[in-house]
Design a protein around this nucleic acid. Structure first.
Length: 203
DNA sequence: TGCCAGGCCGGGT
DNA sequence: ACCCGGCATGGC
């Protein structure tokens, strides 16, 4: 995939805090829409933990409207922001330093943060070797018979983490490439992935 | 015009 | 322990 596409330079966000916000906003949503929402947040002048947490729900929702599910995601963001204020005085980088599973548990305890969002924050914001599984990862694995049809999130994550060294840069690039290959070739409802670079290596 | 996009929650079996 | 409906905008 790297030979075919080149390096990805992910996550496409400037700071760890922006990664975390983007991770919530991109749930089941095109990244292009998320960029608009983040631009709106920055234009509002409150792109910081306590300032966003202080916004009324309806105001926050209106700013993130382009990302879809905007009322729902406003609540989810608030939940995450509250956890950051409580656990690390609003400085997300101060979550680092603890055991990875401990932090993962704190992220998963936030209503609106599921396994993919948690792992994205761990890997792309905090630099922990937590492999990110998404819809593309699952679809590509299933299409190529790499994992059982009924494999769930944790099983897929374990498949990659047991087969790869604990390497943040490797996990980062691998996930990014899976998303890019998925977007370009491995579509739902398309049984044949023609011209997919993976076809050279996988059945 | 539908289909799809870097999910997750809560209630029901 | 699964299964499902709900959540919503924008691009192609």
């Amino acid at each position: 995939m790297l030979d075919a596409l080149g390096p990805s330079h992910w996550w496409p966000a400037a700071t760890p805090f922006e990664v975390a916000v983007g991770a919530v906003l991109t749930q089941n949503t095109n990244w292009g829409n998320v960029e608009r929402a983040i631009a709106n947040l920055k234009a509002g002048g409150d792109f910081e933990v306590r300032a966003l947490a202080a916004l009324p729900d309806e105001v926050l929702a209106e700013r993130i409207r382009p990302a879809g599910y905007f009322r729902l995601k406003a609540r989810r963001l608030k939940n995450l922001l509250a956890m950051l204020v409580r656990e690390c005085d609003g400085d997300i980088t101060r979550l680092a330093g603890q055991d990875m599973e401990t932090i993962r548990g704190k992220l998963l305890a936030v209503s609106g943060v599921g396994p993919e969002t948690a792992d994205s924050i761990l890997l792309y914001a905090l630099g922990y070797p937590s492999f990110v599984v998404d819809a593309y990862t699952a679809r590509i694995c299933q299409r190529h018979g790499l994992t059982p049809e009924d494999a769930g999130y944790e099983e897929l994550r374990t498949f990659f983490m047991d087969g790869l060294p604990d390497d943040v840069s490797l996990y980062n690039e691998f996930h990014a490439l899976l998303v890019r290959v998925g977007n370009a070739w491995c579509r739902p409802r398309t049984p044949q992935c023609r011209e997919c670079p993976l076809e050279r290596f996988l059945p």
